Amino acid sequence: MSEVPAVTRALALLRLLASRATPVPAGALARELGLPRSTTYHLLAVLEAEGFVVHLPEERAYGLGVSVFELGSAYLRHEPLERLARPLLARLVDRVGGTAHLGVLHGNETLYLLKEAPRGAVLLVTDVGVRLPAHLTAVGRAMLAALPRAQVRALYPGVGSFVDRTGRGPSTPGQLRTLLAEEAARGWAEEDGHVTEGIASVAAAVLDHAGRPAAGVGVTFEGTSRPAPRERAELARVVVATAATLSRRLSPRTGARA
């Protein structure tokens, strides 16, 4: 239990507003959080004065204020995701070899933010700043598998949403749904030659405090170093553990610091 209940309640208000697509009336906020209406109005008044919420009188509701945007922008400038992930990816490379990546979803593409490679590694298309079709990459599908099905349908409404690179990988919404269901149940994703012939990858999702995919961690192998299918499960366990550690670092409330 927090020793500063007012702070805890104010943060709960902000999280609730952030989870909604439209402004929320004060009465609804009070009911959902189990707070007295007087307490709710007091907290909203303080947050409004500091710019963290804005009152919309015509709608009789509250939304997030510009101070939240400023904090979010400052968060991005500090590159916390990359900073937290870099040492973990370096350990992952030392342990299993191959090239480790950190990626995020950008629409229906995987955007690569970080890359750690062993000495002498072959150059891969998955470099920092590169975007690839998420349904073809292991990192992308690990994140897609952690999304609600409705969101996946919005990203892939029809066959026109699918890009082909090597003739492998899902090419219809139905194929993608089946593959994502299998990978969600297993806890990790894999691809073999979906992006580049002779290249295989395994990946796992990094989850935020709400269980949403914040990023994906993957390891890529090429040529003779590619693990056989029966060896990928053991490799995947290491990747899953790395992703879980990064999840805890992003959201310490979900577990112990690693």
Rank of each mutant, 00 (worst) to 15 (best):
T245C: 14
L179I: 03
D94L: 04
E59Y: 01
T40D: 05
L44R: 09
L124Y: 01
L124Q: 09
R15G: 00
L76Y: 08
A138L: 06
E222N: 04
V217R: 01
R9C: 01
V46H: 09
L155H: 11
T99F: 09
G218D: 01
H78P: 00
V122M: 02
A236L: 13
A203Y: 02
L250K: 14
E32C: 02
T242E: 00
E32N: 07
P5I: 11
A236S: 05
A74G: 06
A100V: 12
E70Q: 14
A228T: 06
Y112R: 07
S251N: 05
A117G: 09
R141E: 01
A243K: 12
V54P: 04
A6C: 01
Y156T: 06
H135G: 06
S171W: 00
D192G: 06
R165K: 11
V66F: 03
E231C: 01
T245K: 11
V163E: 13
E197I: 05
P87Q: 14
A6S: 07
A12L: 03
H101K: 11
A30I: 07
A181K: 10
H135L: 08
L43D: 12
A244E: 15
P118V: 10
A45N: 14
M1Q: 10
H194T: 10
L88V: 15
A134L: 01
E182K: 07
